[in-house]
């Protein structure tokens, strides 16, 4: 009977431990409360062949009025009207939205990385989960245009 009691207490301790890990993960890494931003990860190695989405893009990507309108409609909620990372949601997020006018970080990212971040969300490129995936909302060509627009805002290219 004692052995059974010991076993049961071990099981319940294990479940409490599992919940504690999950709860800590939610509490620590959500998007709704402030925390210090981690340094950017190093740029991806460029030795591998370019991803398909870039290969397929043959014609030059042009930023149009429609691109700017799309940015204002969707992206500006967090990234701000002028792309300075000061949108209406900014002060409520754990990790501040990227300031698209600053070249220091954006020149360390390739166009493909920016494309991936917009299409599949921040987590897909090892960044904040606050950035949702827009791949079911925006077409690939619109996302390529947005990448180009971000390059316009930061006045920078990938190094």
């Amino acid at each position: 009977m004692r052995a059974f009691d010991k076993l049961m207490s071990k099981i319940s301790l294990l479940s409490v431990f599992k919940y504690a890990i999950l709860i800590t993960a939610i509490g620590v890494s959500g998007c709704g409360e402030k925390q210090a931003e981690k340094p950017p990860p190093p740029p991806l190695k460029t030795e591998s062949p370019p991803p398909l989405s870039l290969k397929e893009e043959v014609s030059p990507v042009i930023v149009t009025a429609k691109t700017r309108e799309t940015y204002q409609w969707y992206c500006a909620q967090c990234h701000g009207i002028k792309g300075k990372g000061d949108g209406i949601n900014a002060k409520f997020l754990t990790v501040p939205p990227r300031n698209h006018t600053k070249a220091e970080y954006l020149e360390t990212r390739t166009d493909e990385q920016l494309f991936q971040a917009i299409k599949f969300g921040g987590l897909s490129v090892g960044r904040a989960p606050c950035m949702p995936a827009w791949g079911n909302t925006l077409s690939d060509s619109t996302i390529h245009e947005l990448v180009r627009y971000i390059r316009e805002l930061c006045q920078c290219e990938a190094l």
């Binding site: 959500g30 949108g87 409520f92 969300g121 989960p129």
Partner: peptide, 30 residues
């Protein structure tokens, strides 16, 4: 599990306020 996905996988918290584990409203306002 769903709260975790609500905040991290789908980023809902970035634009919608919800309740955190302490029962306080948190999240974006758009």
């Amino acid at each position: 599990k769903t709260k975790y996905e609500f905040e991290r996988t789908f980023s809902c918290i970035s634009c919608h306020q919800s309740l955190n584990l302490a029962g306080k409203p948190r999240g974006g306002i758009s």
